[in-house]
């Protein structure tokens, strides 16, 4: 699983890089527009340690933000799954709020919370929260009549059991959504760092762009891709373990 993910990323990355270099040499563009291979290699060696720490920092924030978003989406989806006024309000709010571009809201978050960890965490969580919430609401709202019927007619149904049945029956979908949103968490953290934070790979990217240093940008993108792939693989493995423990036939996304 891991070699597949990594090799897929490496193929795409190096295809892209090859394309850029082909354009550079075709049109004799300077290293300022597209850096040469040696330039990229030297820059990568130069910034590797620093960028590695930065990308690990970003990954840490993304993972925590992702977990927060999952927890929050679960709570809100449970509250909003009912076919009542509260449920309708939560669903309407979720659908309307998710249309807001978080990038536009992010500066307000930085003003309120400063440029430290809380802002990065919040933005990462918000960016992956809404897709999670919409999927969770969809899953938890849909009755599994073939299982729930017995509990309903015998008066045993409780909200915890209802949630458990619906989550269990849609475990593959849930794992797909959680894995898919992991990339969003990473993107959210990088956007947050780019806009307002003072650490992380997004911040390093911003500085590299300020300096018009494409070689640094390419080095950062490489590390982001590798660690994002690692995170996705970790989640997929976790999903398989969960599915196995629950007695569900394990299925890859």
């Amino acid at each position: 699983m891991l070699p597949k993910r990594i090799s897929q990323f490496l193929i795409i990355y190096f295809l892209g890089l090859g394309l850029l270099l082909a354009i550079k040499y075709c049109f004799s563009l300077s290293d300022y527009v597209i850096p040469g291979f040696t330039d990229i290699e030297n820059t990568a060696a130069d910034v590797f340690g620093r960028y590695l720490r930065a990308v690990l920092d970003t990954l840490g924030v993304a993972v925590i933000g992702h977990l927060l978003a999952i927890a929050l989406a679960t709570v809100v989806a449970i509250a909003g799954r009912g076919d009542n006024l509260v449920g309708a309000m939560i669903k309407t709010a979720a659908y309307n709020l998710q249309a807001y571009p978080i990038v536009a809201v992010a500066p307000i978050i930085f003003i309120l919370l400063g440029d430290g960890l809380p802002s990065r965490l919040l933005i990462a969580a918000i960016i992956c929260y809404f897709p999670l919430l919409l999927s969770f609401i969809g899953i938890l709202t849909e009755p599994v009549a073939s299982i729930e019927h017995f509990y309903v007619v015998t008066g045993r149904m409780r909200w915890q059991l209802e949630v458990k049945i619906r989550a269990f029956e849609n475990i593959h979908k849930l794992m797909t959504v959680v894995t898919g949103s992991a990339t969003l968490a990473m993107v959210g953290t990088i956007v947050a760092e780019f806009i307002g934070a003072d650490s992380g790979i997004g911040y390093s990217l911003r500085i590299a762009l300020y300096q018009s240093d494409m070689a640094k940008v390419l080095a950062a993108l490489f590390l982001i891709g590798v660690f994002n792939s690692l995170y996705l693989v970790s989640l997929e493995l976790l999903g398989l373990v969960i599915q196995k423990n629950m007695g569900v036939e394990p299925r890859m996304n």
Partner: peptide, 13 residues
């Protein structure tokens, strides 16, 4: 009065 049918399932966990 209980209604049961053949398409019902027991939870899988």
């Amino acid at each position: 009065m209980l209604y049961s049918c053949n398409t019902e399932r027991l939870p899988g966990w």
